[in-house]
Design a protein around this nucleic acid. Structure first.
Lengths: 233, 233
DNA sequence: AAGTGGTCTAGACCACGGC
DNA sequence: CCGTGGTCTAGACCACTTC
């Protein structure tokens, strides 16, 4: 075993990655423990630890105390999605952002929603429908419910002037959330709002957020046809 | 300032998160430096560093040498997607996985593909179309190109017996990739393969992978209607 | 019981980037 | 210049898991 001086955890990541892709350490194989690698690479155990920890976070290694570190058999690659505010998406492309409130109502949510989202049944919530425009062209249509039991102030906000997404980000922080993406055929109303043909395929994001156990808001966003969500591996 | 003993970086993450959401440290604000926080929390600087680093990786803090650490104004939340192989997705739900090769050809790719993917024009590549089944029902349809200049062995593999995805994962590792998700209306052929009506909305994943600079494979996967991709924030 | 990774510490040096 | 975060080190203790 040659002792090569690899001082940074980045170098070690690359070297380990190399050994994985070239199958020096084939899938399923147990690799040497941190202490041995530290000796081999001429660095401290903490540095090896950081390199291996990050590789395991990206799904390439599997680590267990006492059992050691293994190369994952069928790597489940992790891709990071950046969920930005729609306004930013639009402005990043050099387009002008526009916003229109379509509907506002303080009503009881459908039972399905109350069930799946965990809000008390029989309580009114704020329901908003709005359109996001890019250079005056429909970009996304959103259908949102806000838990006004928890955020009563939302009832007094003029959501025709303030984008609900941005108001909530600044006024009702959440601790965790839950997102799903899918594809649906635009129904009659949706296609009218987005100015597309009925049944056109639209990309959908469903998001629910909570502050600890308390539901904050849930929103379904339909993006105009052609929308792509992009990331790297 | 009270000195509270917070020994773990997890505790510190929670505490800092708490201060962000309760606006003890409002958006845009500069927070104390690592050394001060280490004193306040009664732990070492390295521990504070790990907590703050992780929070900055999830998009809540912004750190710059000399400038210090700030609470991000409009947090762009990072969500992690797990991209698993289709077989696992299906079997995880307790369904039986099936696979059918529909077409195989060693031909020149369309010019658009060569351009966007960076392969030399005028070279033949392996083109595969296949169907993934869940309990014998179409689950996803894939249209794939494999760079046989780089992986000549792929020409000798019987892809009617071996799933291309899995063969490639095990035989042609990649160093990086690029994924996009979108929604499209199924065309006549696609809807026939997936056994749905024409123009039904399908969820699409386009993926390209490279080994260093060399293209490995590119695939477009169309998922049967109803498919959802899920993650947490 | 013993081996492994998970984490913390105290101290150090360095790179970046405002000043 | 010099304050800040970024990283590394050597050592330590602990938690988990397999044996």
């Amino acid at each position: 075993m040659t002792l090569v001086k690899l001082n940074s955890f980045q170098d070690i990541k690359s070297e380990v990655l190399e050994r994985i892709t070239t199958r020096t350490w084939p899938p399923g194989e147990l690799i040497p423990n941190e202490e041995l690698l530290a000796v081999e690479f001429g660095c401290s155990r903490a540095t090896v630890n950081r390199a291996l920890r990050e590789l395991s976070e990206s799904g390439l290694l599997e680590r267990k105390r006492k059992a050691g570190t293994r190369v994952v058999l069928n790597p489940v690659r992790k891709a990071t999605l950046s969920i930005s505010i729609i306004r930013d998406d639009i402005e990043k492309r050099g387009c002008t952002y526009g916003y229109v409130l379509l509907e506002r109502a303080h009503i009881m949510p459908p039972l399905v929603l109350a069930k799946t989202w965990g809000v008390a049944a029989g309580r009114k919530m704020l329901h908003l429908k709005a359109l996001h425009l890019s250079n005056s062209v429909p970009y996304a249509y959103e259908d949102r419910w806000i838990n006004t039991e928890h955020i009563p102030r939302a009832l007094e906000v003029d959501f025709s002037a303030h984008n609900a997404n941005e108001w909530l980000v600044q006024n009702a922080p959440f601790t965790h959330g839950d997102i799903a993406f899918s594809a649906v055929n635009a129904d009659a109303r949706e296609s009218e709002y987005l100015d597309v043909r009925e049944r056109d395929a639209v990309f959908v994001m469903d998001r629910k957020t909570w502050h600890d156990q308390t539901p904050i808001t849930t929103v379904r966003v339909l993006f105009a046809p052609g929308h792509r969500m992009h990331t790297t591996l």
